[in-house]
Every structure is written in C-alpha cells, then in structure tokens.
C-alpha cells in the first residue's frame, strides 16, 4: 500500500524518514482502521438518530475506547519517527561529540519515562483485571486497553533507543 520512496511526513519538525518495517506498517494499518472506526461511530450515532430516531447507545464509550487505542497504537510510530516535539535552539553550535552525547542523554531520559509509563500501566491493567473493571453501558473489559497501552509504551521505549543507536 505504501510506496517505499514516499516522502517523509513533514507535519512534525525534526522528523526523519520512518522505518518501513513490518511492525511499523502493521501498527499504521491498525491506526488507520481505528480512525475510520471513530468516524464511523460518530456517523452511525448522528445519522441514526435522525433517520431512524435510533441513537447508538454505546457511541460515547466506544469513542473513548477507540481513541485510547488509537493513541497507544500510534505512539510507537510517532516515537520511531522522532516525531515528539523538541526544542531545537542552539544545539547545532556545540561540537558534534557533545551533540551526540546530548542525543543519547535525551534518548535515555525518554526511554526511562516511557518505561515507567509501561510499568504503571501493567499495574493498572492487573488491578482492573482483578476488580473486573468494565465500561458502563457496553460492559467491555478495560484491562486489555491498559495492557495495550503498556505494550505501546514499552515498544516506544525500545524505539527511542533504537533511533538513538542509528543516528
């Protein structure tokens, strides 16, 4: 589906051409599907309420859960792209060795933060599994979402380090 020579997305400053790895495309396809689902849920709800006087009762919480899934499916992509907002001030004035050292430092900090996110999300997921946490109207279990988020942060932490290793 994607062209291998496609230009890098330039919406986000400082981004490098992204990895065309299988995992990247797989997550991207999932993200696309989730965006489409978000659109579909709203449309079914809005159109349904006028044409059939039949609103879609689960639209609110389905939107919530699709949104969370989208954010966490996309996070490793943004991270692999180097798409997080950074302040780019006077760094280019430093000698290349210092720049590289700072780059590693920034990568390490990011990976640690993402790693802590992942760890806390595992704890949340485990608690939700234990307490049987579910959504209010559709009674969908919440724990899988927390585990998805945890996996996403863990993969992102690895992606940060791999990126630093390449550049």
């Amino acid at each position: 589906m994607t062209h291998p020579d496609a230009p890098p997305p330039d919406m986000i400053p400082g981004r490098t051409p992204h990895v065309q790895a299988t995992w990247y495309r797989l997550l991207a396809a999932m993200a696309a599907l989730l965006i489409l689902s978000l659109i579909a849920v709203t449309c079914i709800d809005v159109v349904g309420r006028y044409l059939m006087n039949r609103p879609f009762g689960g639209a609110f919480e389905l939107t919530q859960m699709l949104l969370a899934a989208l954010v966490f499916v996309a996070l490793p992509l943004t991270t692999a792209d180097g798409g997080h907002v950074e302040v780019d001030l006077a760094l280019h004035l430093l000698p290349p060795a210092a720049q590289a050292a700072l780059g590693w430092f920034a990568g390490l900090v990011s990976a640690v933060v993402l790693g802590v996110f992942a760890w806390r999300l595992v704890l949340i997921g485990a608690a939700q599994l234990h307490e049987g946490t579910r959504s209010a109207s559709l009674a969908l279990p919440m724990a899988p979402l927390a585990f998805l988020a945890a996996a996403s942060c863990a993969v992102s932490a690895i992606a940060v380090l791999m990126r630093r290793g390449r550049t």
Binding site: V85, E86, V87, D88, L91
Partner: peptide
C-alpha cells in the same frame, strides 16, 4: 534545551 522531548 538538551533536546529531551517536551512531553517526557
């Protein structure tokens, strides 16, 4: 300033 992404 050390280019740690703002969010992190």
């Amino acid at each position: 300033l050390a280019r740690v992404p703002i969010a992190f």
